[in-house]
Amino acid sequence: MAQTPPARLMDGRDLARRIVDTSSATAADLRRRTGTAPCLATVLVGDDPASATYVRMKRNRCEQAGIRSRHVALPASTTTDELVGTIAALSRDPEVHGILLQHPVGAHIDERAAFEAITPEKDVDGVTMRSFAAMGFGLPGFVSCTPGGILRLLDEYRVDLAGKHAVVVGRSPILGRPAGLLLLGRDATVTYCHSRTTGLSAITREADVLVAAVGRPRLITGADIKPGAVVVDAGYHPGNIGDVDFASARERASLITPVPGGVGPMTIAVLLAQTVEAATRQLGAD
Results as ranks from 00 to 15, higher is better:
Q3D: 12
P6E: 06
M10V: 03
L15Y: 08
R17L: 07
R17Q: 12
I19S: 08
A28N: 12
L30M: 03
T34S: 13
T36K: 13
L44S: 09
A50H: 13
S51R: 09
T53P: 01
V55K: 06
R56E: 14
M57D: 11
R59M: 14
A65W: 01
I67W: 03
I67H: 01
R68Y: 08
R70C: 11
H71C: 09
P75C: 12
A76L: 10
T79F: 09
T79Q: 09
I87Y: 13
L90C: 05
R92L: 15
R92S: 15
E95Y: 03
G98V: 06
I99Y: 08
L100H: 10
Q102D: 00
I109T: 08
E111A: 15
K122P: 05
D125A: 10
S131D: 03
S131A: 15
M135A: 13
C145K: 02
T146L: 10
G149Y: 01
L153H: 05
E156W: 02
V159K: 00
D160M: 04
K164F: 05
V168T: 03
G170D: 04
P173C: 00
G176D: 07
A179D: 00
G180W: 11
R186G: 02
T191I: 11
A202E: 15
T204Q: 06
V209Y: 03
P217M: 04
R218H: 13
R218A: 15
T221N: 03
G222N: 07
G228L: 05
A229W: 02
G239Y: 10
A247C: 00
R252A: 04
R252K: 13
A253T: 04
S254H: 02
M266Y: 01
V270C: 05
L271T: 07
Q274E: 13
G284R: 07
A285R: 10
